[in-house]
Nucleic acid binder design. Structure first.
Length: 647
RNA sequence: GGCUGCGUAGCUCAGUUGGUUAGAGCGAACGACUCAUAAUCGUUAGGUCGACAGUUCAAGUCUGUCCGCAGCCA
């Protein structure tokens, strides 16, 4: 069965932020899908890159006193250099500041201009520098940017517009007649809902005086191209699409199999802006646009302002890139949000990778070493037990493509692990460590079956954990198979020398915080009593360690305002030296907003963030009730540097 | 406020066109085994399937109302 070539893309990551878990997940997902695809015998072209124009980048460069180009030349490496460390193998990395890209965007725009798809008009609105876009009067919140809360300025200016509205019906038609164009399907409904509100035209320019760091419009040098228009074009510029009509081989080969993987936050830009641009240019629409969910922390989006950012990328340094990949791909159902936690990652590592898979390899290898001098024994004729395993291996390989095609990667992994569990059971049932004394032939048969089963599992998990599974296959003494079709039972030749010396996936301890909360799994009986020890003892005392978990720090109040609609609450911005936190505190009846600014207070730093009056509060200020019903704020005397730990 | 989706064991989730005692993995308890990374294998416990009402011989599965959560839009 032949498969059509697939062109797999991640979004171009915008250089105004450091790589985070969202970027990493998307790239890992595309990488895994590409590797699966190749295992199925298909061809793939994997594109990623960076989006380097725009005001934020320009500003950041200015702040550093650098030329924007020098700035992005440096910054884009944070992404480009990251991918290999996550075992991600892309085919091309495109930067929007490269000539090959700028050239295509220019041709793109010129063609639209020539075809009358772009017109100039006056535009009036409130512009937010932080969000880099206009808002209507109605959209503003308290006269500020609804996205960033930043300042907006009223601007009236001439700009260029793309006649996007023209394509509303054509796009709706395409979405409704192509059920899996947008995946998962409920996202398609979202886009249709967006279209039903009526599609306007899209402003695609920014005056040069306001934004110089961009691609100049070919028909008006006083303007540069709007960042989205610029960035989205990468999907065809990387293939060398040409506006003159002469298409490149790369474009013809790959574009028909285009799969854009994106985060759900950029659904509209891809499903509406990009698609209508393509319609206007007469370029066929991509085959699929796949919107993934977000990795959350404590059921919330990770964000610096909420203070719940965990550093999943740091996990690769602690646990290894393949373990991180396994966790991300196993624990997220594509399209839905998932919670990220180090604890969940460690549990996955321990139960699936260390216990089930790694340990199985170890026990099989140990027995082969002990009883057969480390040489894989002759299997002999299979009995029903072996036939069951062989059938399961066959079924696994047969089902795999279906799961991957449905983008049920987590399911593909789960099915594989079920097979591994079956191998463990088979090993226990046939007990080669016993039969070796009574029936060496049976022992040989069992061990051969487990080794061969491991080879199947390793092959099928290769796309998820390329390096670790290559190690396992090498440990089994065989050459890896490139294609699933070549994965047939009996690939391990009897007499092969096994080389599985070390544990493939070491067990890990749960992170400290998790262990304190969970019932410790260690030393079953002895630990039981101790484990049940509650944080608060019967006499009401807590032990020293518990107290030390409360992080009290000195904080300087830098801003304060009353919370509208509440008599008691003040919203404070406090500095902890290296970070600023927002805290909502019920002290307004005793302290005015003005009087708080400049004061030093004591903040409970590691209190879980919560919303009070819809405002996120990241900590608590401590105070004492006074005898006359007043309130006395606690503060270090004398004043100490903000952020100083108090204990 | 409008629209859409979701709410199933402690946790993460499956549950096909409504049909016998609601499933899996993790976690837990107990047991077996001892080749192995305190591993593996087995057994058990734990759910009024968000609430209420309705349709039906029969509802986690359909309808309505409500509660909670999320997303999109305004």
């Amino acid at each position: 069965m032949s498969r059509s070539p697939k062109y797999l893309t991640t979004p171009l990551y915008y250089l105004n932020a450091k790589p985070h878990i969202g970027h990493a997940y998307c790239s890992i997902l595309v990488d895994a899908v590409a590797r699966y695809e190749r295992l199925f015998g298909g061809e793939t072209y994997f594109l990623t890159g960076t989006d380097e124009h725009g005001q934020k980048v320009d500003k950041a460069a200015q702040a550093r006193g650098m030329e924007p180009q020098a700035h992005v030349d440096e910054l884009h490496l944070a992404f480009k250099d990251l991918w290999p460390t996550l075992n991600i193998a892309y085919d091309d990395f495109i930067r929007t500041t490269e000539p090959r890209h700028k050239q295509v965007v220019t041709g793109f725009l010129q063609k639209l201009w020539d075809d009358g798809e772009i017109y100039a008009d006056d535009y009036e609105g409130w512009y937010s520098t932080t969000a880099e876009r206009f808002f209507t009067e109605d959209e503003l919140v308290d006269g500020r940017c609804p996205d960033s809360g930043g300042e907006v300025t009223h601007i009236k200016e001439r700009n260029y517009f793309f006649k996007m509205s023209k394509y509303e019906d054509a796009l709706r038609q395409h979405i409704t007649s192509t059920p899996d164009f947008i995946r998962p399907p409920h996202r398609a409904n979202e886009v249709l809902g967006f279209l039903d509100k009526g599609l306007g035209d899209l402003c695609i320019s920014r005056p040069k005086e306001r934004l110089s760091w961009g691609i100049p419009l070919p028909f008006d040098a006083e303007y540069v191209t709007y960042v989205w228009f610029d960035a989205l074009s990468n999907y065809v510029s990387a293939l060398g699409w040409s506006s003159t009509g002469e298409s490149t081989k790369a474009f013809d080969d790959w574009w028909p199999g285009a799969n854009h993987f994106i985060g759900k936050d950029i659904l509209t830009t891809h499903c509406v802006y990009w698609t209508t641009m393509l319609l206007a240019l007469g370029i066929p629409l991509p085959k699929h646009i796949i919107a993934t969910g977000w990795w959350l922390s404590d059921d919330r989006k990770m964000s610096k302002s909420i203070g719940n950012v965990v550093d999943p990328l740091g996990m690769k340094d602690v646990y290894g890139p393949d373990v991180l990949r396994y966790f991300l791909l196993r624990d997220m159902v594509i399209g839905l949000d998932s919670n990220f936690s180090e604890e969940a990652l460690v549990r996955r590592n321990n139960s699936d990778l260390a216990n089930d898979l790694g340990n199985l390899a170890r026990r099989a290898a140990g027995l082969v070493t002990r009883y057969f001098d480390g040489l894989v024994p002759e299997p002999g004729a299979p009995t029903d037990d072996e036939l069951a395993v062989m059938n399961a291996a066959k079924g696994l390989a047969a089902n795999l493509m279906g799961w991957v095609d449905k983008l049920q990667i987590h399911q593909a992994i789960e099915e594989t692990m079920q097979f591994v569990r079956q191998l463990n059971k088979y090993m226990t049932d046939t007990a080669p460590f016993k039969t070796i004394k009574t029936d060496p032939q049976a022992a040989a048969r069992s061990l051969y079956t487990v080794v061969e089963g491991l080879r199947h599992a390793a092959t099928v998990l290769g796309p998820v954990m390329p390096v670790k599974m290559a190690e396992l296959v090498a440990g089994l003494g065989v050459e890896p198979v490139e294609r699933l079709d070549d994965l047939t039972w009996g690939g391990v030749a009897p007499g092969t020398k096994l080389g599985l010396e070390t544990a493939l996936f070491p067990r890990r301890d749960l992170p400290v915080s998790a262990e304190a909360e969970a019932t410790p799994p260690k030393k079953k009986k002895k630990a039981k009593a101790a484990a049940k020890a509650a944080p608060v003892a019967a006499d009401g005392n807590i032990d020293f360690d518990h107290f030390m978990k409360v992080e009290l720090v000195a904080a300087d109040v830098i801003e304060a305002e009353k919370v509208e609609g509440s008599d008691k609450l003040l919203k404070l911005q406090v500095s902890l030296g290296d970070e600023t936190r927002q805290v909502v505190s019920g002290i307004a009846e005793h302290y005015s907003a003005e009087s708080m600014v400049g004061k030093q207070v004591v903040l409970v730093k590691n209190l879980a963030p919560r919303k009070i009056f819809k405002i996120v509060s990241q900590g608590m200020i401590i105070a004492a009730d006074t005898a006359d019903g007043g309130l006395a704020l606690m503060a270090p005397t004398p004043r100490v540097p903000a952020g100083t730990r108090i204990h």
